[in-house]
Each structure stands twice: as structure tokens, then as C-alpha cells.
Design a protein around this nucleic acid. Structure first.
Length: 350
DNA sequence: GCCACCGGTGGC
DNA sequence: GCCACCGGTGGC
């Protein structure tokens, strides 16, 4: 718990000052001055989402002081089009990929991430225009809870009266993100890779050094820093790195270890396969579900909606989502945000 | 040969 | 059960 909502704006402004990168972020939403829905590309889809989410929003409010953050991802560029409620891609894209593209090592999986944070006052989700902005907000989310007014920096007319930018629906995967993660040092990039459903882990975090070197643990970072004292001289410290990954809201997105073990012990000689602890969750039917166009969408949130969510509705999501499937490595690149340590939010199935 | 991605485990 | 770490390898 924590005190939230209160003069957040001014201070955050200060933090935001350096939008660092590409010159003109504040315009992000400029072209869509009216309703927030305009900033969403999926017109009808989102509309309905938002509509049906009224309920959700109410429920969400039960999360007393949620100051949540989420991230939306649209993993795979290609086709998947309206999967996501990413703000007009035309405007959105430039900001994100820019950093990614400039990074030699990122094999530029053309993924797009959209970031969302929940207003601490009205509990509606607001899309954040850039990853950088999102990281800024996330870093201080506990001290400076996000509110709709904060978004005025890039959406001058936004307020709690406007409909939510996005809400949960079956087409995306939501995950709980961690709060208070430092922004990466200047020139560094923090990458989050979502693994495919059924993997042993939800995601991997990588830091990409200015040189393009990818580091996947604090041990590696430390080693790297020692080998490159210039960074240390410049003030880079280990505390600026965090390999914490968000937690999928959908229980069972990640394969349980016990199951993995069971499978391992199963050498194929017996007639029976190991029993899944939760038939429903790993139901082959679910895995085999048709891969719709909604597949690659993922959203990461951070407030613990897990409990209620892990109930029945989950299955639906599973079914409509891409199954873990043989050969491909379907991981998506995403970026995440903070978490509201404030769990328990009731979420009805849309 | 490289590296992005996945699997797995030790330690808590 | 979670997290940090890193080995292995398929696919390029």
C-alpha cells in the first residue's frame, strides 16, 4: 500500500524532462486530440473492449491504490494487425523501433510495444507513448503514482473522464510487471523477450550495451563493467540493472516445474503419460487451439489480477492464443513496466 | 560460427 | 514456487 495520487505531475515532469531520444515525443498523440480512442488503431475492437470493460474498470477500482503499469506488445509485426490497441502505429512505430534499430544486435524483430499504466485515481489504463517514457514512469511509480493528468504531457486534453485506452480482453496476454526498475544507463537498452506459452519461464531480460553486447545476468553485467571501466567512470553501476521479469497474469502461461519434471521422468516406456496437475490448464485442446490473428498480442500489466483471473476465463484465452508449437520460436519482444504490489482485483471475463 | 532462444537447476 | 544464472542448440 502506499499513498498515491497527489501532486504527481510536477515532479514527474521534472523527471521527464529529457525525453532523450528522438526529438519530439510529446507529439505522439497530437494528432488525436479527441477521445482517447482515436489513439487506438483498432477502432471497433477497442471500442468494444472499452465498453465491456466498464465492468472491469469498476472491479479494478476495488484495487484500492493500484498504480499499475502495463505494457502491451504486439510481437509480430506482420499481419497481426489489429491485434493490438497500439496507438496509431504510424506514429507509434517511429519512436520504438528507433532505438531498437539503432541497436546492431537486435535482430530487429519488428515488434512493437505499447505501454500502459493504470491511473491511480480512476484506474483506467493509459497507453504510454514510448518505451522510454514508460521506463521513466515505472522507475518512480511508487513515489509518483501515475494518474491520467500525467498523460497530459503528451495528451493535453486527457483526463479521468475519458474512456480507458485499453482493457483486458482475451486477445492479449497480460502480465504483472515490477515497479521501481531503474531506467537503463544512457546508451543502454533493456530488452524483454516474452517466451512462448508453455515455456519454463515467462520471459528473459537482456541489457544491450552501447557496443551492442548483450548481457543476460548481473554477473555478466558486472564482468562487462569491469572490462569496460569507462562505464564505471561515467557512473554506471549495477544498481541500474534489473533482470526481473513481469509475471503473466494468466496462470499457467508458464509451464510448472513439476510438470516439466514429470515429463522428464517420463521416458516414453510407460503406457501412460504423466498426469498433468491441472487438466484444464494444460489441456491439449487449448494448446492446439486455432491460431487466430490475435495470437501474437501480449500485454503486460502489473497489478495482481492473478487470482480472479486464474479462474475459468483463462481457458478461453488459452484457446484463442497461439499454442506452443513445435518448431518455431515464437517469442515476442516487449517492454515492460512496473507492478502494483496491490493484488486482488476482480476481473470479469469480457 | 554466431546468437537468439529455450531448458533446466541450484539455492533460496 | 520463484529467481538468477548459464549451458545447449537450432537456425541463420
Amino acid at each position: 500500500m502506499q499513498s498515491q495520487m497527489h501532486g504527481t505531475l510536477p515532479e514527474m515532469k521534472k523527471e521527464y524532462d529529457a525525453f532523450g531520444d528522438s526529438g519530439s515525443p510529446p507529439d505522439m498523440y497530437k494528432t488525436s486530440p479527441d477521445s482517447s480512442n482515436n489513439s487506438l488503431d483498432g477502432t471497433s475492437q477497442e471500442q468494444t473492449d472499452v465498453a465491456s470493460s466498464d465492468e472491469n474498470d469498476e472491479d479494478v477500482q476495488s484495487c484500492a491504490n493500484a498504480s499499475n503499469q502495463i505494457v502491451v506488445y504486439k510481437p509480430d509485426n506482420s499481419d497481426t494487425t489489429q491485434v493490438l490497441s497500439v496507438p496509431d502505429p504510424a506514429e507509434y512505430e517511429p519512436s520504438l523501433p528507433q532505438s531498437a534499430v539503432s541497436d546492431p544486435t537486435t535482430k530487429v524483430l519488428p515488434s512493437i510495444g505499447a505501454f500502459t499504466v493504470q491511473c491511480a485515481e480512476c484506474f483506467k489504463w493509459r497507453l504510454i507513448p514510448t518505451k522510454e517514457k514508460y521506463e521513466q514512469i515505472r522507475e518512480y511509480i511508487m513515489e509518483e503514482p501515475f494518474v491520467c493528468a500525467t498523460a497530459r504531457e503528451w495528451r493535453p486534453d486527457i483526463s479521468c473522464d475519458d474512456p480507458a485506452d485499453i482493457s483486458q480482453d482475451g486477445s492479449r496476454l497480460w502480465a504483472i510487471d515490477k515497479p521501481s526498475i531503474s531506467q537503463p544507463p544512457p546508451g543502454w537498452q533493456r530488452l524483454l523477450r516474452i517466451r512462448g506459452e508453455g515455456s519454463t519461464k515467462f520471459a528473459d531480460v537482456y541489457y544491450v550495451a552501447p557496443s551492442g553486447k548483450r548481457l543476460r545476468s548481473t554477473v555478466e553485467v558486472q564482468k562487462y563493467l569491469l572490462e569496460h571501466p569507462e562505464f564505471m567512470r561515467a557512473g554506471v553501476t549495477l544498481s541500474q540493472f534489473s533482470f526481473q521479469v513481469p509475471k503473466p497474469l494468466q496462470d499457467n502461461y508458464v509451464r510448472k516445474r513439476s510438470y516439466a519434471k514429470a515429463m522428464k521422468q517420463y521416458d516414453g516406456s510407460a503406457l501412460e503419460m504423466p498426469r498433468l496437475q491441472e487438466p484444464a490448464e494444460v489441456n491439449p485442446l487449448a494448446w492446439a487451439g486455432p491460431s487466430q490473428s490475435t495470437d501474437s498480442s501480449i500485454v503486460t500489466s502489473q497489478n495482481g489480477l492473478s487470482a480472479p483471473h486464474s479462474e475459468a476465463p483463462v481457458l478461453d484465452h488459452l484457446v484463442s492464443r497461439p499454442k506452443k508449437q513445435a518448431t518455431r520460436r515464437p517469442s515476442k519482444q516487449i517492454f515492460t513496466g512496473p507492478e502494483c504490489n496491490q493484488p486482488k482485483v476482480k476481473v470479469e471475463k469480457p
